[in-house]
Each structure stands twice: as C-alpha cells, then as structure tokens.
Nucleic acid binder design. Structure first.
Lengths: 194, 194
DNA sequence: GTCTATATGAAGATAGAC
DNA sequence: GTCTATCTTCATATAGAC
C-alpha cells in the first residue's frame, strides 16, 4: 500500500473514532488526548494528521454530512412513497433510543453546545441540519405540492429535536414511542386534509 | 447591617450574576474567574462564598427553582383559566425570543451539556423541568379531568424544547412565532375534542 | 512518518498574610 | 471577612530526535 494511501486511511480511522467520542463527551470536554486514546494513535502523532482540535471537528462534521446524505439517498431508493420516507425519518429517535436517552441528539446537542460561545464552529454544526431540512422539503413538496413544505419540514425537525431533548432529560423510552406515534398521526392527518 | 446579613447578600448577588453567565457560556466554559469578574468579586474571595464550582451551580439551580415556582404562582393568581395558563406557558419562547435565538433554552441547554458526562450534576438540572412538568400536569388535570395529563404535559415540553433548539440552530424568530401559534391551535383542538 | 520531550497557558483549588 | 500568592493538574500545541 502506498504511504499516501495509508495516511488517508489512518485519518479516516481517527475521524470515525472521534465522531462517536464527540457525541458521547461533547466538544469542550473531548480533549486531544481523548481523541488519541480512542483512535489508538500516539498523542503527539495525532498532530501530524490534524493541527488543531477545530480541524478534527471540521473533518468529523464533513464525514457526518456524507454519511447522512448517503442514508437519505438509500431511503429515496428503498422507499418510493414520500409519506413512508417521512415516517422513516420520524422513527430515527425510536431506532436510536438508547443513544438518545444517554446523550441526546448528536446534531442538536453539538449545536446547542457550540452555539453559545463558539459561534464560528456553530456554523459547521448547522450544516448537519441543512441536509435533513432540504431533504424533508423535497419530500413534502413531492407529496403535498400546495403546502408550505419548509414550514412542515421545520415542524418535523422541531418535534424530533424536542423528543431527543426531553427523552434525554427524563431518560424515558416510552416518551419516545408516544411522541413518535403522535408524529405519525399528524402526518396521516395531513394526507386526509389534502 | 449585620455581617452575617451582608454575606448572604453578596452570596445572593453572586448567584444572580452567575445565573446569567451560566446561560450565556454554559457550565464547562464558565470559569471561576468568569464568575468572579461578572459578579465583581475578587477571584480569591469567591472561594469564601463557594468552595467549588459545583457548589455555585447547585446554588444557581436552587435559585432558579424558586424563581420559577414564584412565576407559576403568579400565573395561577393572574389567570383563572387553565387553558389561559397553558397558553401563557407556550408563549415563553416568544417573550424570550432574543435569548432563545442566541443561547437556546436555559434549562434544556444546561441539561444537554451536563447529561453527557457529568451525570451527578444532570440530576440537578432535571429538577428545573420537574417544576414545570408538575405544574403543567395540574393545569391539564384541572382542565381535562379525563385526559392523560402527564402525556399532554410532556408533549408541551417536547414542543417548546424543540422550538428552542431549532430557533437557536437557525436563529429564526419567525420559526418561534409559527410554532407557538401551532401549539395554540393544538390546545384549542383539545378543548373542542372534549 | 513516528514518537518523545517539553513549552506554555489556564483551569480549579488552597494556604495563609492582612 | 478580604485578598494575594501559589500549588497542582491538565489542556493545547510545538520542536525536534529518531
């Protein structure tokens, strides 16, 4: 294997290990040493791949953007009906139940943390939401051409973020089940109304 | 003024200054020096009033609990109708618009931050939610005796938390207006259904 | 490319002079 | 009660030997 290729591979390995660490610890409590330990890379060596902690964050978010886009493309392929796709989105908190209860939403918690003081970094975390938002808008537009697709997309994001926050507060799986079911009913009521 | 009394007064002043600082910076990025500067107390002196940073947090949360309880008591006195009280609650994001957009919800963002690693401190922040939750349950019980008051209370908390998170992500005042109006409609639909 | 040693600064916290 | 000096720890980051 070429040396260049190996560097890229290790870099990728660090990014994936940090992705999880970032979620579990948050950005400010995640130290450079933590990253090195988690990725099994000698601490000093890490600086060869990333010069600053912000640079790691940047790489992790870009990685998340790609992963999310791929997931949504898969859904587009697997699910022909926009309503089914939207329901699939709403079920994320159910599928990620244990993580949500322990750590909240990976996107929401990061944005909330960075948004207070690190305004420059917050803009990065906002991009994560943009991917979902524009995908949701496309689904609503396709499904209900005369509705305000962006308002509906934001409403879905509001409710899923609220679920993540409150499920984390009370560590309550049933809260997630109940609220996701309620979203399903809301989506079906939109179908009936049109 | 007695010395004892003065101590209490300065302590209270520190707590109130820290309350705001905690909201704007978050717990982990708020240093002991920050607290001292914001409260205009010499840094070394601060340790006379609070031995650790966690102790300050504890005092600030207790202070918030009292303030919230008083506010809810005021609402109980001012607004005779439970529905009006619930609408008043739902309007908090509108009244606190500028703060929410810049810093998110003071309760939600604190819980999200502490919940990841500082599990012991998270329990403190959970208490803030308990005050609202039990008050909301009382309002729903009084208004709709045969409904699942706790599920309705949680639903309201979910939606207000979601609003705060997403309004902070996109720094969007209109999002708040729209979503709060939507909550109002939901509350009115509950009245019609019963 | 890999790793060690270390510079530098800021944090939380304490001791003790006044 | 008030304030200064300082201890310790841990963070980011760099220089440079191998």
């Amino acid at each position: 294997m070429a040396a260049r290729e190996k560097t890229t591979q290790i870099r990728q390995h660090i990014i994936e290990a940090t992705d999880d660490l970032l979620y579990r610890k948050g950005f400010n409590l995640m130290s450079f040493s933590d990253i090195a330990n988690t990725a099994n890379v000698p601490r000093g060596n890490l600086y060869y791949y990333f010069k600053t902690k912000n640079e790691v964050l940047d790489a992790v978010i870009k990685h998340r953007l790609i992963r999310t886009s791929q997931m949504l493309q898969d859904w587009d392929r697997m699910l022909p009906d926009p309503l089914e796709r939207l329901k699939r989105f709403a079920r994320i908190p159910v599928n990620e139940m244990q993580n949500i209860i322990q750590y909240g939403c990976p996107m929401g918690s990061l944005n909330t943390e960075l948004g207070k003081v690190q305004y420059d970094l917050k803009q990065l975390s906002q991009q994560q939401f943009d991917v979902f938002r524009s995908w949701l808008v496309r689904q609503f537009t396709q499904w209900l051409p005369h509705a305000n697709a962006d308002a509906l997309a934001i409403h879905l994001l509001v409710r899923t973020q609220g679920i993540a926050t409150m499920a984390h507060v009370y560590e309550d799986p049933q809260l997630i089940e109940r609220e996701v079911t309620s979203i399903d009913h809301w989506l079906e009521s939109l179908a009936d109304a049109s």
